Amino acid sequence: MTFSSGHRKGYRLRPNMASVALWPSWLIVLAGYLVTMIWTVLISFTSSTLLPVMDFIGFAQYERLFLTPRWLQSLNNLALFGVLFIAASLFLGYLMAAALDRDVRGEAIFRSAWLYPYSLSFIVTGVVWQWIMNPQLGLQKAVNNLGWDQFRFDWIIDPDRAIYVVIIAAVWQSSGLVMALCLAGLRGVDPDLWKAIRVDGIPLWRAHLSIILPIVAPMLITAVVLLGIAVVKSYDLVVALTDGGPGTATDVPAKFIMDYLFLRGNVGLASAGATVMLLGVIAGLAPWIYSTTRKSSK
């Protein structure tokens, strides 16, 4: 079948028309993200309080930021939350995926039940776990009503343990995502490899650790990136679950920034905190982006 020159020209123009159709989306991205990020960075070098003002004061806001105990505590909380949340989600998610990969009966029910929490927003998760952890309403109250009056599970009001309540709630919601990703990776493993493992008599735990994990590593990396994004966006979970309390025991940088931006009327300091978080995200993603682009260019 042959095409006339007119048909060939029209065919060549279609990709260009498709790119033109995407221009409004690109403009929205540039205006909504890039321009606002540049504006935030600029404001962080000013003395802006309730309203932005363009008077350059250097790094004074950053010096004040890192001399604020609440900001330092929020960074410590974020580091602890991020490490334990990602590690626990990866561990539990992979265990659930490995269990489902054994062709268990009722797999669809288990898979749906474990993945269901991820469909909820962090706000809903925070409210649900606030009820569960409330000593007067939740788990402690239920166990006390059964006769165990000495049982105590009041972590949510304990400044030293409240951050672990946030971690538990986040793991409950996100481990199902890791399970789904890892299960997709496990289902891609060659069945002949499993036969060889059984023939050689390799223990199941050793096979997963030494053979299977390297195969599903791309899925785990994807999970780490998605969980890392959830760590940075942990504002809504913290607000719904503990509101940063008791005191500032569960405060995170995102809540610090929002409080100083809307409640304390210090736009300059809030912008400095947002810029620090932006630089942290870029520093964390840069090695992954570099390795990905380098592999694709080979």
Rank of each mutant, 00 (worst) to 15 (best):
V189N: 03
R187M: 02
W155Q: 01
C182T: 15
A97Y: 13
L183A: 01
I168P: 01
A108T: 14
I123E: 05
C182Y: 15
G106P: 10
L181R: 07
F153D: 02
P135Q: 09
G176N: 09
W129S: 00
D192A: 13
R161T: 06
Y94V: 14
D101H: 15
D160P: 01
W114Y: 15
R111A: 13
D192M: 01
D103Y: 04
V189W: 07
N144R: 13
S175D: 08
W172L: 03
L137C: 05
Q130R: 15
A108I: 10
L100P: 00
G185F: 00
W148R: 05
I168Y: 10
L139Y: 13
I167C: 01
P117C: 10
I132H: 04
M133A: 11
S119I: 15
V128Q: 11
Q173D: 08
A97M: 10
I123D: 02
C182P: 01
L115S: 15
G126T: 05
P117T: 05
M133H: 05
R111E: 14
I109W: 15
I167R: 06
A196I: 05
F151M: 09
R105D: 04
D160M: 08
A108R: 15
I157E: 12
A169I: 03
R105M: 07
V128E: 12
L95R: 13
A113H: 12
R102N: 14
D190Q: 06
V143Q: 00
A113V: 15
I156C: 02
Y94S: 09
A184P: 01
V166F: 05
G176C: 09
L137F: 13
W114T: 13
K195Q: 11
L100A: 08
Q140I: 03
L115E: 12
R102Q: 15
A99P: 04
T125P: 00
G138F: 07
L100G: 11
R152Q: 14
W114L: 15
N134S: 10
N134C: 01
A99S: 09
D154C: 06
A99L: 15
L146I: 08
L181E: 05
V124M: 13
R102V: 07
R105T: 11
Y94K: 08
P191F: 03
T125M: 12
A142C: 03
I163N: 08
L120C: 09
A99E: 09
S175Y: 13
V124W: 04
A196H: 10
R102Y: 05
R187W: 03
L120H: 07
Y116K: 01
D192I: 04
I167L: 05
Y164D: 02
I123V: 15
S121W: 06
